[in-house]
Write a protein that binds this DNA or RNA. Structure first.
Lengths: 334, 334
DNA sequence: ACCCTATTTGAAACCGGTTGCAAGAATATT
DNA sequence: AATATTCTTGCAACCGGTTTCAAATAGGGT
């Protein structure tokens, strides 16, 4: 185990060729006589040679690492996306290296800098708040893709999902179940996702000829706690509603708890639809009807897209569809 | 932005010294004339010099990266630990680089190999299943610490928490609330955590003079689904119980759902205590009484311990205490 | 056969640092 | 004042690869 590191020089000597030749068969970017190539491969095999990634990185300029900018490890949805990225990279020669931006443009900037200083070959940004203008300048310096976020002008480098349509679907499901007075708990308004979902909610109402009642939409921040606060405030204001579309599952949980506290039955008195389908949602009481996003596939697709991009290959992303998972938190009325 | 990379050579020329001298002030490991040192620092400042991590790694042997072996990104508890590790490293010059072992010793081995090939300066293992014997051989080759796992013979390199005592506490809380027939849903028996918690459960019963009833303990696998199955099987067997101590919160959620399905009220008919205090637990209906583990602090402590270890410094880990979070899922009876 | 072109190949420079060694300068010893 | 000792410092080798360039070899055409 602890025996001397074997290097390209060892292989060269063992195969009776020069370092250059070994390097060439390693990268097979230059034709090499078949006989020698086999000799080299044999030597590598026999000596159990593993090229030194660091040296390779220094000499060749590429580090075989992909920088991943996350925003908040610990959030179920983004974690899954991140997991997908790791998965997508796992069978390649690239390793991911992470930095966390905490949804703060300033921190994001410095995190990106850290990653670039580490000489990453490509960048994957999972979500993020950094204004597009800041990214534009980086765009040409490194191959990069953005996942779980849609940015104007970056269309072919964004892997994401149609939040508007999905939110519209979810809201329509409530409408089709007979609900008219549907509240919406919105996520952080600074996040495009939150705005998109709100737009989908509005679109569904509009299409069904239901007037938008501003009193029914209340701002949250994607946390469970903000979900309970939202319901409290609705109740406080005395507005009546029979359905709630929450901007994510966490807030749906909060909403559900607030109702439990008030003795409001779910779904008999009020129906709830969430967004994200995080693992626990199937185990809420009652199990939560919610929008499933293909979080992991998105992450994987991002990894593949980046790889393809770096190799100048064409990449057609897989279909990334959301799906309304119907469980038991919606009651048909009228 | 895109201007030429400035290297140590540029600094040397600009400050009228040799590369060696620059390197020396950079690492300040050799005395350097104060005058020159200032000149060098000034030049670095002026030219905005950032040493090339890769070159440094190749030459000096240390890569300024820490390998983190995770087991399953996406699990709330381990995610938090991982987050703590990232946090603990964030103000240092080290960057974490990840590999996932999926709780599979074979994959773990190859993941560790990948990390070592990348020349990491240290290793943090978050949980894991790899037998201690396999780790022993690595032990001397790289500084490493293990977090969220206790391994015999590694005491001073394990950052973890007393699962047995915490589980005993939790069970005692049920006992003190008047419960005698307490079921236990156990996690994956191959995980030390699961076994420890089971032992704590047994210890609590023993101390209170309650005989252990094997029929009351059922094996799960830490997933919510296994929680519902556990309750189903208990009910099927017809054993009666008024309390449940689940090996983690996920299984507690499953248990709670199973009871909801059967019309068993929580906590009026059956009380539940979980383990982990994951974010959603406060929003279960009713809010779940559970054991909180200082997951993030553990991760941070692991990072600090490793750093200290690498510098041959002494490190006293912070107190890492579990705490029973009393909420509303336990009913006092009798 | 002979000359020209295409293919393989090795030597050497390079990537950006670190470090052993010895020379030169500065300080201490007798 | 001469010599011994200690500090500083630069040179050059080295870390383990990649890549340019030119030499060597092979193949093709007439």
């Amino acid at each position: 185990m602890a025996r001397k590191k074997i290097t390209i020089k060892d292989i060269a000597e063992s195969a009776n060729v020069s370092k250059s030749t070994v390097s060439r068969v390693l990268n097979n970017n230059t034709p090499v006589n078949e006989e020698k190539r086999l000799a080299v491969l044999e030597a590598m095999e026999r000596l159990n040679y593993k090229p030194n990634v660091v040296a390779r990185s220094l000499a060749g300029g590429n580090s075989m690492t992909i920088g991943v900018l996350t925003q908040n490890i610990g959030s179920p949805f983004y974690d899954k996306v991140t997991q997908g990225v790791i998965q997508g990279l796992s069978d390649t020669d690239y390793s991911p290296i992470f930095a966390d931006g905490r949804w703060d443009p300033e921190i994001e900037t410095s995190a990106i800098k850290t990653l670039i200083d580490r000489n990453v070959d490509g960048l994957i940004m999972v979500g993020g708040n950094l204004p597009g203008s800041d990214l534009d300048s980086l765009r040409d310096s490194k191959p990069m893709v953005i996942v779980a976020r849609r940015l104007p002008g970056w269309d072919n480098k964004c892997i994401s999902v149609d939040n508007v349509a999905a939110a519209k679907d979810a809201t329509e499901y409530l409408i089709n179940s007979g609900h008219r007075k549907i509240a919406h708990i919105m996520g952080i308004p600074e996040h495009q996702d939150a705005r998109d979902r709100y737009m989908g909610y509005q679109a569904a109402l509009r299409d069904s000829g239901i007037a938008l009642d501003e009193d029914l939409v209340v701002k949250g921040n994607f946390s469970s706690q903000s979900g309970v606060l939202a319901i409290e405030s609705l109740l406080m204001k005395g507005v009546s509603f029979t359905g709630v579309f929450a901007g994510n599952d966490e807030m749906a949980f909060g909403a559900r708890l607030a109702m439990y506290r008030r003795g409001i039955r779910v779904p008999e008195d009020v129906s709830i639809v969430g967004y994200d389908d995080q693992p626990n949602s199937a185990f809420m009481t009652p199990p939560l009807t919610t929008v499933a996003q293909p979080a992991e596939p998105m992450g994987e697709a991002a990894a593949q897209a980046l790889l393809a991009f770096m190799r100048n290959q064409e990449f057609v992303p897989p279909r990334l569809d959301t799906e309304l998972i119907v469980r038991e938190s919606v009651h048909r009325i009228r």
